[in-house]
């Protein structure tokens, strides 16, 4: 095992990394064979690479304050604590829709999700240029449209919230011409967040009737 005294002095590694000084011949030879010293030089070089830019990576104060305010938003926190997953109760690919709304269109799929007395209807359509449109409606099963002017629906891919739609007075939302991908929906309404973690694909094979 190498003794500690054999290693290159920290100041020499620092000066090599930060000030671009050369190591002397024996130190360079040691560096080539010493994992520990190479590791030290590596983190010093990464630190030096951050350099003066590191101090510019603080966002402007108003931006930071806007982000920090999120943590003080008690109504939003309450919604997050009350997050529930909505389960599918109807899927036009798996079962026939009631007469009158039955569709034979191969490029659309209709689904209904439910949780805690709330129903989320979703209609996915694929256009000829392979763009997806998602429209839907959020309703209280007993009383219909939910009265919440702040209600909204987020379109999400793996945690990335890419679009937001507010709910109309009739509980409708729409996302037009989005790239075809595996989306989830998050519905923020009253003190709850209703989640559809992953919408089935519109390309999925239909169940045989």
């Amino acid at each position: 095992m190498e003794s500690r005294i054999d290693h290159i002095a920290l100041v020499s590694l620092f000066e090599r990394a930060r000030l671009n000084t050369e190591l002397d011949g024996s130190a360079q030879a040691h560096l080539n064979s010493c994992h520990l010293c190479r590791g030290r030089l590596d983190w010093m070089q990464v630190s030096a690479g951050l350099g003066v830019r590191e101090l510019s990576y603080d966002p402007p104060q108003p931006v930071m304050e806007a982000v920090l305010r999120l943590g003080r938003d008690s109504s939003r926190l309450k919604q997050l604590r009350n997050a529930v997953v909505a389960l599918v109760t109807f899927d036009s690919f798996k079962q026939l829709a009631p007469a009158g709304i039955r569709s034979t269109e191969a490029s659309s799929r209709q689904m209904t999700f439910e949780t805690h007395g709330v129903e989320i209807g979703v209609l996915m359509r694929l256009s000829e240029d392979r763009k997806l449109s998602l429209a839907g409606q959020v309703l209280d099963k007993l009383s219909g449209p939910i009265q919440d002017p702040a209600a909204r629906v987020d379109l999400v891919i793996e945690g990335d919230h890419i679009m937001t739609s507010s709910l109309s007075p009739w509980g409708e939302f729409v996302f037009s011409d989005v790239p075809k991908a595996q989306y989830g929906l998050q519905v923020y309404v009253l003190d709850r967040m209703l989640q559809i973690p992953s919408l089935p694909s519109i390309d999925e094979q239909r169940s045989p009737g």
Binding site: R53, P59, V63, L70, L80, A83, D154, H161
Partner: peptide, 27 residues
Amino acid sequence: FKWGLQREDAKEIYQSVWLDCFQELHS
């Protein structure tokens, strides 16, 4: 910035990432 975007874009992306993080805290 490492992606080559400008300061105005960086501000928007920064806020958007933290908003997503906040909204995904439960998961």
